[in-house]
Simulated scan of single mutants.
Amino acid sequence: MAAGPEIEQLIQLLARLPGLGPRSARRAVLHLIKKKDQLMVPLSAALDRAVDAVKVCEVCGNVDTRSPCGICADPRRNSGILIVVEDVADLWALERAGVGAVKYHVLGGVLSPLDGVGPDDLSIDELIRRAAEFGEVVLAVNATVEGQTTAHYITDRLDGFDIKVTRLAHGVPVGGELDYLDEGTLSQALKARTDM
Rank of each mutant, 00 (worst) to 15 (best):
residue 50 A to Y: 04
residue 51 V to G: 00
residue 52 D to N: 14
residue 54 V to G: 11
residue 54 V to R: 12
residue 55 K to R: 15
residue 56 V to N: 11
residue 61 G to M: 01
residue 62 N to C: 14
residue 63 V to H: 13
residue 63 V to T: 15
residue 63 V to Q: 13
residue 63 V to A: 13
residue 65 T to K: 11
residue 67 S to V: 10
residue 67 S to P: 10
residue 67 S to W: 01
residue 68 P to H: 10
residue 68 P to A: 13
residue 69 C to V: 09
residue 69 C to Q: 05
residue 70 G to W: 12
residue 71 I to V: 15
residue 71 I to L: 15
residue 74 D to H: 08
residue 74 D to F: 06
residue 75 P to T: 06
residue 76 R to Y: 12
residue 77 R to M: 01
residue 78 N to Y: 09
residue 78 N to V: 11
residue 79 S to I: 00
residue 79 S to C: 06
residue 80 G to W: 02
residue 80 G to L: 08
residue 81 I to H: 09
residue 83 I to C: 08
residue 84 V to D: 05
residue 85 V to M: 02
residue 86 E to D: 00
residue 86 E to Y: 08
residue 88 V to F: 08
residue 88 V to M: 08
residue 89 A to P: 10
residue 90 D to V: 05
residue 90 D to F: 09
residue 91 L to D: 07
residue 91 L to A: 02
residue 92 W to V: 15
residue 92 W to F: 15
residue 93 A to Y: 07
residue 94 L to M: 12
residue 95 E to F: 02
residue 96 R to W: 11
residue 98 G to A: 04
residue 98 G to Y: 09
residue 98 G to F: 04
residue 98 G to E: 02
residue 101 A to I: 11
residue 101 A to K: 14
residue 101 A to Y: 13
residue 102 V to A: 02
residue 102 V to D: 02
residue 103 K to E: 13
residue 103 K to F: 07
residue 105 H to C: 10
residue 106 V to Q: 01
residue 107 L to T: 01
residue 107 L to E: 08
residue 108 G to C: 06
residue 108 G to E: 07
residue 109 G to I: 07
residue 110 V to R: 03
residue 111 L to N: 03
residue 114 L to W: 11
residue 115 D to V: 10
residue 115 D to I: 05
residue 119 P to G: 02
residue 119 P to M: 03
residue 119 P to E: 04
residue 120 D to V: 12
residue 121 D to M: 11
residue 121 D to Y: 07
residue 121 D to I: 05
residue 123 S to Y: 14
residue 123 S to T: 15
residue 123 S to W: 13
residue 124 I to N: 02
residue 124 I to Y: 03
residue 125 D to F: 07
residue 125 D to W: 08
residue 126 E to R: 15
residue 127 L to I: 06
residue 127 L to M: 06
residue 130 R to C: 05
residue 132 A to H: 14
residue 138 V to L: 03
residue 138 V to R: 07
residue 143 A to P: 14
residue 144 T to A: 02
residue 147 G to K: 02
residue 148 Q to Y: 11
residue 148 Q to G: 02
residue 150 T to I: 00
residue 153 Y to C: 05
residue 153 Y to G: 05
residue 153 Y to L: 03
residue 154 I to K: 05
residue 154 I to V: 00
residue 156 D to L: 14
residue 157 R to L: 04
residue 159 D to C: 14
residue 161 F to I: 00
residue 161 F to T: 07
residue 161 F to E: 06
residue 162 D to F: 11
residue 162 D to L: 10
residue 164 K to E: 14
residue 165 V to L: 01
residue 170 H to I: 14
residue 172 V to D: 04
residue 172 V to M: 08
residue 174 V to A: 12
residue 174 V to I: 15
residue 176 G to P: 08
residue 177 E to H: 13
residue 178 L to D: 11
residue 178 L to R: 10
residue 178 L to E: 07
residue 181 L to K: 04
residue 182 D to S: 04
residue 184 G to V: 13
residue 185 T to K: 04
